[in-house]
């Protein structure tokens, strides 16, 4: 049993960094390739609302909890929620394709879909 940090542990750190970098670059490439960005609001995977990111909008999602989604100045966010913890509100604003704000208690997803949505992104 090794109890001291050793050279081999750098391999573990490198593996985690590599995995994170591959994943991040896959999403970055997806965002760069996107021509137009569409805001999509989904509940349990079902599309309830969508609009172009350039168009300002306010939409209220009613599930187990209530989320208010705001689209303004080419950014989108969950601006109000009555879910416990309100992690979705604290996630803040997103503005690039491939990004998403999730409210797990409500099973709500606010996603920014790129125009090339038909092409599946390959992750890790």
């Amino acid at each position: 049993m090794r109890l001291r940090f050793c050279k081999g542990d750098w391999i573990a750190i490198a593996a985690v960094v590599l995995f994170a970098a591959v994943l991040a670059s896959a999403f970055a490439l997806h965002a760069a390739a996107a021509a137009g960005v569409t805001v999509e609001v989904r509940l349990d995977g079902e599309l309830l609302f969508s609009c172009p990111l350039e168009q300002d909008a306010v939409y209220t999602v009613q599930g187990d909890y209530t989320n208010t989604v705001t689209v303004r100045d080419g950014k989108a966010a969950v601006t109000a929620s009555d879910c416990p913890g309100a992690d979705c509100v604290h996630s803040g604003w997103i503005d690039a394709a491939g990004r998403a704000v999730i409210c797990l208690p409500n099973r709500m997803e606010l996603r920014l879909a790129g125009a090339a949505e038909d092409v599946d992104i390959i992750v890790g």
């Binding site: 985690v16 994170a20 994943l23 999403f27 349990d44 998403a100």
Partner: peptide
């Protein structure tokens, strides 16, 4: 969360979490 929300987009958040996990 990807299974629960039926979305690969949830994985966009994982790189940040992985950095913190180190």
């Amino acid at each position: 969360s990807m299974v629960l929300l039926r979305s690969v987009y949830a994985a966009a958040y994982l790189p940040f979490l992985l950095a913190v996990s180190i």
